[in-house]
Design a protein around this nucleic acid. Sequence first.
DNA 1: TAATTTATTGAGATTCAGATACAAATTTTA
DNA 2: TAAAATTTGTATCTGAATCTCAATAAATTA
Lengths: 152, 152
Amino acid sequence: MKSELEIFKEYIRGQGLRQTPERENILQEITTFTGHFDVDELYLRLRRQGIKISKASIYRTLPLLLDCGLIREVDFTDGHWHYESIYGQPHHCHLRCLKCGAIVEFEDPLLICVEQKLAWRFGYLVKTHTLEVQGVCPQCQERLETGDDGGD
Amino acid sequence: MKSELEIFKEYIRGQGLRQTPERENILQEITTFTGHFDVDELYLRLRRQGIKISKASIYRTLPLLLDCGLIREVDFTDGHWHYESIYGQPHHCHLRCLKCGAIVEFEDPLLICVEQKLAWRFGYLVKTHTLEVQGVCPQCQERLETGDDGGD
DNA sequence: TAATTTATTGAGATTCAGATACAAATTTTA
DNA sequence: TAAAATTTGTATCTGAATCTCAATAAATTA
């Protein structure tokens, strides 16, 4: 299986773009780190390693990584986008706690059935899906019951 | 079943807020119109009827309508939020064409199964879910095959 | 290897959706 | 009807994301 770097290089080349240390550093950081991130977090994490890249470059690089399928947009919360790297990882969905924001990742084969039914029923060529299930996590349920609200 | 207006009035009262013609006009327009909308569309639709309400008031009213469950955020595209009214309507998901943006609404009972399994497995109190399936609609598939790309 | 071409970078300006401050107007309660 | 408190519109502000532009660096060619 190709590495993220190989995928990215091929993409860059195929688009007539250029390989730069900035782009490689960003990719490196994204693939090393597991979990969700946003532009600011990525920027700070790079800086903490002594790697100085302007936010403009990060904003310019993310669409490339999205386009070649190495990352995906997770959600738009707090007024900005959050991302996660997805290459080589099985597709998954999110279960989010409405109170504390905790995220559980899961996958369910039923979604494939849903996709297939849609393809058949509406003639769509189905590519992927994004499912977020919202609820209250066990901890927050307990907090709500004991009256210790925690501030919503 | 209570009307949207009743729901809203109860909510307003319960929160110690005030009933104003601006808020009622916004609610009225949202419940009359079917389909997705954004702040600008809502603003223009109101103005076309001679109802002048500042965008600030719309921005201030939408969170109230979200909070009392009369509308929901549909997606964040084009750099801003889109909404739809949901009160009294069965929950549904979206199938979106990646090429032309067309939206098909559907529902699938399998999602209930998914929710139940999550509740059991992770102990969450599941409230709702948001599923968007992405693909290419039949028309765009045809356009792509005949080479008439249509611009992405 | 050096010269040429063209893309990319960083800094700062710009844009735009959405939030906010404040004075005037309106709703609510009494 | 008057007092108290909220809401409105206008203008301003905020912040994420984009754009401009000169300087720099990558790829290509000789």
